[in-house]
Design a protein around this nucleic acid. Structure first.
Lengths: 365, 365
DNA sequence: GTGAAAGCGCTAACAG
DNA sequence: CTGTTAGCGCTTTCAC
């Protein structure tokens, strides 16, 4: 899912021979305060007619339409959407609330959301909540205050639940992180199964002491993945050791690194330290590899590592990361569609959706 | 201007046991259409008074204020900002246009912007332009249509120039990428000097064949860094070889990886391939390290690598990346402040500002 | 096919 | 201190 190119005027763009070719023609009058009324006057029609052509209504005589259009771009007029929004009672803005914009996993999802939103004439307002309930609530209030028409929430389930109670009627959907019981439309993956897949891969490579570096248990996905991990181990006849598990309140590289170092140095019964680690996000896993290296362990020879998400970076680190791939782009796109659907038909029963994940085997495990 | 809502999500749409438990307590009345008038009535005062307490004006008797406040939260009323915005003629939305939200460098800057925007009562609308002039223009139009009060642009200078000609009067500022000649307020670093610093570091380590993996020349910073690279080499008595230089139209890891592989395999006069590479972004540099490894070169033993930006990941890869640190957070914060300043006083002469960079030496070079 | 007029919900004079 | 009132710029009946 790589970006794209967008060459524009590349290559030929010389240092700056002439920075302003535009000999200062008369651009359509920047026109600060210019209202539909002036355009109407200039075109010799009524405001109603101008409004009609602006909105592409059918019932306007071509000749009239042309007159109006001419007046519009002679004057450089742009509709004032503030007024339009008030009148039509919609802002055409969609909120997206993420715990951390800097996380590449969320970044890709956000792209998916943005792309379908724009496709449908909406803009996306990105909100970095830092997983803070207070900020979350204040952003959510934008819905009630009519600043936004709908919202997509990727924040921890614990936060969502609080939100849901206070406002189950508001138009919002959950993405990646969701509680099916909550009655809010959602899209995500089967975290329990995915975690099991990761662990079973490690098992199949002969590992029996498998560590889990997990995120905050505020996240339902963290609890689900942990359960998947636990059950997979148990099914293989292994009794999970508590000392193999850690919960972090951050997904940063640094957090993963120090957690891994800690995990390996912990007093384990002689050589009973984990021979493999399952980290619930790639950022964590990349940190883990770094942390392992810092305490003299090699990956995958001494310790195998599997991550989660399959961000684009996963293939680039050394060793390339074995991981569970989530369809990030689609997750975002689907969330946006679900929301749009809800907006179009508030009464319809919007379903929950699960998208498929898959195990990507590279060299780290 | 499409508005239909396309199909829902396909894939495994869960059976959806019971999608709407909806305990239906009685929260303060979700109150869809509730206007200031009803609150006024309920409080036994006029709309003007309600408005006054809502906006924290002084001249309201405490008793009256309390009555109003009581009515407000008894009814669960929230102001309709659509109306407020129209009346006050401002949207309190700031646009941020970036070429790629997924790039960790931009992500951190965006955080800086968002933080000071919120601090000042603004929200930030994030726009991923993909460095596409068309999308850029359409986003920019949001300013004219009053959807946003101001904008911060991080897109290529070539695009900015087109924008500037069409609308130098609009309230916007440039960040990281800027043309001082353009008369638009900006914040960034001294790219020429920074690139020189990177190259001089390599020189001091004894390298004389230094490659440059650069981004698209649409970016002024790319041209400036190239010049810094060229001059540093020349000053050291080295004649730069054209075959040491590459321009990429992407900053993705993959792009860096394949460029590096290509650079090393190119037919150089016998063993005249570069012994060091300067990449103009950390993402590129990380890709470069990966690409080098894929053709059997070790870093830094066979080839040294220095990057640019100092994203958090730089310290986590193997080997940790030597790089030029940019004060990303401050860049964003400063850009936001400049814009706010311009908004507060449109006539004031807002200056350009350069922030300091610094060389961070780690193990890759 | 086109125009006149009534608001959308709020803020800000201006009176009292 | 509080209430009345006039719009902000647009869309949308309802007449003609």
């Amino acid at each position: 899912m790589s970006k794209s190119v967008s060459k524009a005027a590349r290559a030929t763009s010389l240092p700056s021979s002439k920075l302003r070719p535009q000999p200062e023609a008369q651009p359509p009058r920047p026109a600060e305060g210019l209202s539909i009324a002036q355009v109407a006057e200039q075109a010799g029609v009524s405001v109603a007619t101008v409004s009609r052509v602006l909105n592409g209504h059918e019932n306007v005589r071509p000749a009239t339409r042309d007159k109006v259009l001419a007046a519009v771009d002679a004057s450089g007029y742009r509709v004032n959407e503030l007024a339009r929004n008030l009148r039509t009672a919609e802002s055409r803005l969609l909120l997206t609330m993420v715990p951390d914009v800097g996380n590449p996993f969320y970044a890709e999802i956000v792209r998916g959301i943005d792309s379908v939103a724009r496709q449908h004439g909406y803009f996306m307002l990105l909100c970095d909540t830092g997983a803070d309930p207070g900020r979350e609530r204040s952003y959510f209030d934008l819905l009630r205050r009519r600043r936004a028409d709908g919202a997509i929430c990727l924040d921890p389930a614990t936060i969502q639940q609080a939100l849901g109670e206070a406002s189950s009627a508001l138009p919002w959907v959950a993405c990646c992180e969701f509680d099916p019981e909550m009655g809010v439309p959602y899209v995500g993956i089967d975290n329990y199964k995915a975690a099991g897949d990761a662990v079973r891969h490690l098992l199949s490579r002969g590992h029996r002491r498998i560590g889990l570096i997990n995120s905050d248990v505020d996240y339902l996905y963290a609890r689900q993945r942990q359960q998947g991990y636990l059950d997979a181990l148990t099914e293989a006849g292994i009794t999970p050791d508590e000392r193999w598990r850690m919960n972090l309140n951050s997904l940063d590289y640094e957090a993963g690194a120090s957690a891994a170092a800690l995990l390996m140095q912990q007093p384990h019964a002689s050589n009973a330290a984990p021979s493999a680690i399952f980290a619930v996000s790639d950022t964590l896993a990349i940190g883990v590899i770094h942390g392992l290296r810092s305490v003299g362990k090699r990956v995958p020879d001494d310790v195998a590592v599997v991550g989660f998400d399959d961000i684009s970076l996963a293939a680039q680190v050394d060793p390339p990361l074995t991981t569970i791939a989530q369809p990030m782009r689609e997750l975002g796109e689907t969330a946006a569609r679900l929301l749009l659907q809800r907006l179009a038909n508030p009464l319809a029963n919007v379903p929950g959706v699960l998208l498929p994940h898959r195990l990507v085997i590279r060299r780290s495990a």
